[in-house]
Each structure stands twice: as C-alpha cells, then as structure tokens.
C-alpha cells in the first residue's frame, strides 16, 4: 500500500472520495466474481487449511504435531534402511544426509550456486514484472487493443516454458544470460495475462465514477485501475515466482547453467548419491522459502484488500 500511496497524488479535496473509490473497486475483484474468461484463469494454488489456522494457537502447539511427523518419518526411513526395504546403495542414512548438508554449508561453491540460483530468479522477475504489468495495462485498458491481442496472448499462453530452452541455448549459450532470459520470457507471460484480467475486471461503475470526477488518466491509473488489478497481478507474481525457480533449476540440470541445478546433476553423474539428496533437499528449502517470501509480500501489498482482511479476526 505504501507504494501505491506514493504513486497516488497527495490527499487533496478528493481525498475521501478517492479512498472510498479504491475500496469499492477492490471489493469488486473479490475472488467470488471473476472476469468472463474465468474458467481459464490460473486459479490461486491452495495455501493452507484457512479456517483452521484462523485461531492461532501457541508456537509450540502449532509445531508439535508436524515435528512428530518429521521425526516419525525419520525413524521409518532408518527402519526401512535397516531392514533393507530401501537399498543403502541408493538411499543415505539420516546421519549421512545431515553430514552431507553440513559439508554443503561449509563449501564455497555451494553458496555461490545458491547465489546464482537466487540471482536467476530475482533478475528474471525484475525484468518480467514491470514488462508484464506495463504491457498488461496497455493491452487491457482499451477494448480494441484487448480484442486485437487476446488471440495472440491465448496462442502463446499454453506453450510450456520448457519448450524455449533448446532454442535459447543455441542463441545464448549456457551462462547466466540464458537463465535470466528464460525466466523473464516465461514469467512475463503470466504476469501479462493476470494484469490484463485485473485491468479488465475493474468495475464499470468505478470507472464511470472516476470519469464523472474527471480524474485524468494518470490519476485514474494509480487510484482506480492499479489498486483494482493488484490482487490479480499479485497472483501472477506468485505463479511467476514458482515458474522462475523451476526454470532456473531446469537450466542448471539440462545445460549446466550456474546454480543448484547444475550441482545436483553433477553430483548425480559423479555417483555422489548422498550429496545429491542433500542438494535436492536444499532446493526444496529454497523453493519453500521463496514461496513463503512471495506470499508475505502478497499479503503485505494487499492488507487493505477485503479478500485478505476477511481471514483476520
């Protein structure tokens, strides 16, 4: 919201009207009523057990059961290894895995790889978010541009991002440039689509009201259109973040671009099974951490939005 406020004009005579406008615009994009094409709108992934989490018990109580589960899984794992249900040739003991993790934490290459992975993710998104939002506003703002570009967007949307990988390798080699290009290309698409939906779903009454108040376009963009489209855009950003990490790692796996992915495949090829498991575990943690981070950002950008406020008591 801070950013929005910064972009919005200072409180003037219209201050109060403006705020209520924002709120009514926001109310119109609650998940319940989506734009016309909502059946192929990427629906936000499930994040939790909503209502159950609503009354927050203490930290210990919340984590007791999951901890027991993790411990039980560890014990089961060891048992399976001890009884040769799982072959020790392919699966490490829990202790070995912990040792391999510790080795990783002490190694320089590991940390640079983590950094590269994060850089591929971040720089890719840094390009795609502004590009997608800007293009989305441009296309979604007018019915004619919307109808002209809709078929084009619909054509490119189902192409799996992975399809571009071989082409991009030929053009860009296998360095960081490849990762960033792939991430930017694949994710800007999702942000573009979500922005278009968001901009299209601004309620007509709200827009008409803005017209009646003779808001100039720039004013309208920051006080009406963007706030209304923001929930949809943020859904796009979350999708994009997931895709970004997947692509960064895939580029590493397939052509050895710097990052966790290339470490995993190297460990696999070298037969360092335990090291490979440790790296896979780290990749999971990375994906998890980034998901939580983006969810936090989404929440804090949308605190004012009814769909976010509804859950909090």
């Amino acid at each position: 919201m801070d950013k929005l406020e910064a972009g919005a004009p200072r409180e003037g005579r219209l201050g109060r009207e403006r705020r209520s406008l924002v709120l009514s615009a926001a109310a119109s994009t609650s998940p319940g009523d989506l734009p016309v094409d909502d059946h192929d709108r990427p629906v936000e992934p499930v994040t939790g057990y909503g209502r159950l989490d609503a009354a927050r018990p203490s930290l210990l109580r919340r984590w007791r059961d999951p901890l027991i589960v993790v411990l039980a899984l560890g014990v089961l794992w060891e048992l399976a290894l001890a009884t040769s249900l799982l072959s020790q040739e392919y699966f490490p003991r829990v202790g070995e895995l912990a040792g391999a993790l510790a080795d990783l934490l002490g190694s320089q290459t590991f940390w640079t790889s983590v950094l590269y992975t994060l850089a591929g993710w971040g720089l890719g998104l840094l390009i795609s978010v502004p590009v997608g939002v800007f293009a989305g506003i441009a296309i979604g703002s007018h019915w004619l541009t919307y109808r002209a570009f809709r078929p084009v967007v619909e054509f490119f949307r189902p192409i799996p991002s992975i399809a571009y990988l071989p082409l991009a390798v030929v053009a860009l080699g296998s360095g960081m440039r490849l990762t960033i290009f792939l991430v930017a290309l694949a994710t800007s698409w999702h942000i573009l689509i979500q922005t278009i939906y968001g901009v299209r779903s601004v309620e007509a009454v709200t827009m008409d009201t803005a017209t009646v108040f003779r808001f100039p376009y720039r004013y309208r963009l920051f006080t009406v259109i963007l706030p209304s489209a923001l929930p949809s855009i943020m859904t796009g950003v979350r999708l994009a973040s997931t895709i970004a990490i997947v692509l960064t790692i895939t580029a590493g796996l397939v052509v050895g671009s710097p990052g966790i992915g290339s470490l995993v495949i190297r460990a696999q090829l070298a037969g360092q099974t335990t090291g490979m498991y440790a790296l896979i575990f780290v990749a999971g943690l990375l994906g998890w951490g980034l998901d939580i981070l983006v969810r936090r950002v989404q929440h804090s950008v949308l605190v004012w939005h009814p769909s976010t406020r509804k859950g909090t008591p």
Partner: peptide
C-alpha cells in the same frame, strides 16, 4: 509441493 519438480529428475 514447493520443491521445484525438475530437481527430482536426477533422483
């Protein structure tokens, strides 16, 4: 779920 799917391919 958050584990990037391709990373499991070497596994």
């Amino acid at each position: 779920r958050a584990m990037p799917p391709p990373v499991l391919v070497p596994f």
